[in-house]
């Protein structure tokens, strides 16, 4: 699920649209990032930060 859809489901569409335009643009940018080949687990992050 995209970050935008997640926030709309968590706070409601009306509340989401009440957020500033710049914040919503930031969320759109976040959602445009390419995915990794496989979902990333906590263990992978822990190993990557060692």
């Amino acid at each position: 699920m995209s970050s935008k859809k997640f926030l709309i489901s968590a706070m409601g569409r009306k509340n989401y649209l009440n957020l500033s335009k710049s914040f919503r643009e930031n969320i759109d940018l976040l959602d445009k990032l390419p995915p990794t080949a496989k979902p990333v687990t906590l263990k992978q992050i822990e190993n990557a930060l060692k």
Binding site: L7, T36, L42, I45
Partner: peptide
């Protein structure tokens, strides 16, 4: 890192959701 990942799994997904809500509510 959790916030930036497009397809987090398990605990990372939970963490990303909490951060997104925090940023939205903080704003």
């Amino acid at each position: 890192v959790a916030l930036l990942l497009k397809n987090p799994d398990g605990d990372v997904k939970i963490a990303k959701g909490k951060i997104l809500k925090l940023l939205a509510n903080g704003r």
